Amino acid sequence: MSISSLKGGVGKTSVTLGLASAALAAGIPTLVVDLDPHADASTGLGVEPNGENDIGHLLKNARRADIAAAAVPSPWAGRSGAAADGQTPVLDVAVGGAFSGIYDRPDLKLRNLRRLHTVLSRQNRYELVLIDCPPSLNGLTRMAWTASHRVLLVAEPSLFSVAGTERTLRALELFRKEFVQGLQTAGVVANRFRESSAEQRFRLEEMRTMFGDALLSPVLPDQANWQQIQGAAYAVHQWPGDAARQSAARFDELLHGLADPASAGVR
């Protein structure tokens, strides 16, 4: 599943990390592919760029790449303790880096668009793959969409973000028709919502009207200590305090709805 937004600053990577945290807590073997050259997801997962094993080099050598062997375990998994079967839950990272930027151009041909699909098609270690995309519709995002079964869109309840999400849905529909007929839209997540803001309350209602059942539940509120959690490279499920527990519960609900679309609804 690709996590996408064509507008920066809406918390796309934060949603990726929250879902990864929920998957780890649920014991789902998960791989996070950090396709953004800024590598913020790798940093948040406690993993540093590691030279020629980063995702850019794996894409360059797609036919020979072994992503399960090259992926780096997140320290989050070590902090989670053993699962019921005595095994440490799996949360690995295909580490991001600037090298992947060579593919982030608008004129990428189909052969190159399929590189990530080729890399991922040979793995059988992970039940869930989350792809953190750059905030653009250049080659890397389209490469992620080509490799994905579904695309999850992240938006803030703000004028430009809502308009950008509507444009992204149109772009996704065109991409589906031209390249990947089976690609599905997982839905739209409203992120960083502030109940105290009349403007954001208005925009959230606008999102409900515009996106209908595609707007997922729950809405994710703006969390004051989110930067602290990410700065410490911790999973939200592993952070103390009521705010973190409430946030973790929302990501559990979101992940459950994505795994079982029939249970997802608009709130």
Rank of each mutant, 00 (worst) to 15 (best):
V154K: 04
Q184G: 10
E178N: 10
F175A: 00
P157T: 00
S158W: 03
G164T: 15
P157M: 01
A186H: 06
A171Y: 10
G187T: 04
K177S: 13
E166T: 15
T165S: 11
T168Y: 11
F160C: 04
V180W: 01
T165F: 03
Q184A: 12
L172C: 06
R176Q: 15
P157R: 03
F160G: 08
R170H: 12
F175G: 02
R192M: 14
A163F: 05
S161L: 06
T185W: 09
V154A: 05
N191K: 04
Q184Y: 04
S158V: 05
L169R: 12
T185S: 10
A155R: 01
G164L: 05
E173H: 12
L183Y: 09
V154P: 00
V162I: 10
L174V: 11
S161D: 09
V188G: 00
R167F: 12
F175I: 00
Q181W: 12
A155Y: 04
A171G: 08
R176C: 00
T185E: 13
A171W: 06
V180S: 08
R170E: 15
V189W: 05
V189G: 05
G164I: 03
Q184C: 06
L159A: 12
V154S: 03
L172Q: 04
A186T: 07
L174K: 09
A190L: 06
L159V: 11
V188N: 02
G164M: 07
L172V: 13
A163H: 09
A155Q: 01
R167V: 11
L172G: 09
Q184M: 12
L172S: 10
V189I: 09
K177N: 11
S158G: 13
F160T: 03
V189C: 04
G164S: 14
R167A: 13
R170Y: 14
E178W: 06
Q184S: 09
L174D: 12
T185A: 10
S158L: 09
G187F: 00
R170T: 15
E166M: 14
E173W: 08
S161W: 00
F179S: 05
N191Q: 13
T165E: 07
T168L: 15
V189H: 04
L169E: 12
E166A: 15
E166D: 15
A171M: 09
A163Y: 08
Q181V: 14
